[in-house]
């Protein structure tokens, strides 16, 4: 579903990704772990087409097609979703208006009819239950005044509404206490399906106790330096990242 081929990317002229390759198939959940400044957030942004991040080499393919020339909204419409590490507060734009516009833009791209106001509301109510939210959320401005937990739940609610093929969850656990983390992770687990792939980007292993990945990749200095299964994540939790750096250094020196 998603193929990253030797991706190089920079922000403000500074190289961040330095030859990152990764293949994610439908139904798979991949965890990307790495120390600070390894390029984790840059990875999520370049897949979604953030204009501040420039891809300088390689290719990003989604279902076989390069997405590099596509605008962020076009990537969303073909089924790519990003759960933000820091969801943006947008005063004055109601969640229901925004989300209805988003859902209908995505449906239109898929050749489906627009949802009527009634059907939208029905679906929204259903999907809010996934993350324990109440319908007053719809009348509030997007993320405005939300707690950290509410913001992350709102991200997962939006994901449920938009039904993406690929969901990228960027530091979903940051700023969450254990209870909130469990709610959010349960919501995500309910959205796992054989047709949907997920890329879970995280600094800590904690999240992966709730959201068990099929594969774990370690990102250091803009490249994936080690891949494994869920056990690799636990090893990182126990030993930190330094042993991987040491291994890399030994390999480079050999």
């Amino acid at each position: 579903m998603l193929e990253l081929v030797d991706v190089h990317a920079e922000v403000d002229g500074k190289p961040i990704l330095k030859g990152l390759s990764l293949v994610v198939k439908a139904g798979e959940v991949h965890a990307i772990m790495g120390p600070n400044a390894a390029g984790k957030s840059t990875l999520s942004k370049v897949i979604c087409g953030h204009e501040a991040f420039r891809v300088t080499g390689g290719d990003i393919r989604f279902e076989g097609q390069s997405v590099l020339e596509l605008a962020p909204e076009e990537r969303a419409r073909i089924g790519i979703f990003l759960s933000f590490q820091h969801p943006v507060e947008i005063p004055g734009v109601s969640t229901s208006y925004f989300l209805k516009a988003a859902v209908n833009a995505v449906r239109k791209a898929r050749g489906l009819d627009e949802l009527s106001a009634v059907d939208f509301l029905k679906q929204a109510r259903e999907k809010m239950k996934l993350v324990d939210m109440t319908k007053d959320l719809l009348n509030r401005s997007v993320n405005q005044g939300f707690s950290g937990g509410e913001k992350k739940r709102n991200e997962i609610f939006q994901m449920a509404m938009l039904e993406p093929k690929l969901a990228i969850l960027d530091e979903m656990d940051s700023g969450l206490d254990v209870d909130a983390l469990r709610i959010v992770a349960n919501g995500v687990n309910a959205l796992r399906s054989p047709e949907r792939a997920m890329l879970v980007i995280t600094h800590y292993q904690r999240l992966l106790d709730y959201l068990v990945p099929d594969y774990t990749h370690i990102l250091v200095d803009g490249r994936i330096v080690k891949s494994g299964d869920a056990d690799l994540a636990r090893e990182v939790e126990d030993r930190g990242y330094d042993w991987i750096r040491a291994e890399l250094g030994a390999a480079a020196g050999a």
Binding site: G49, E51, A76, V88
Partner: peptide, 16 residues
């Protein structure tokens, strides 16, 4: 216009 807010809306499929 806040570029972060613009990107957020667009990343959900809303046109520029």
């Amino acid at each position: 216009l806040d570029p972060d807010a613009l990107f957020y809306l667009r990343s959900r499929g809303v046109g520029a």
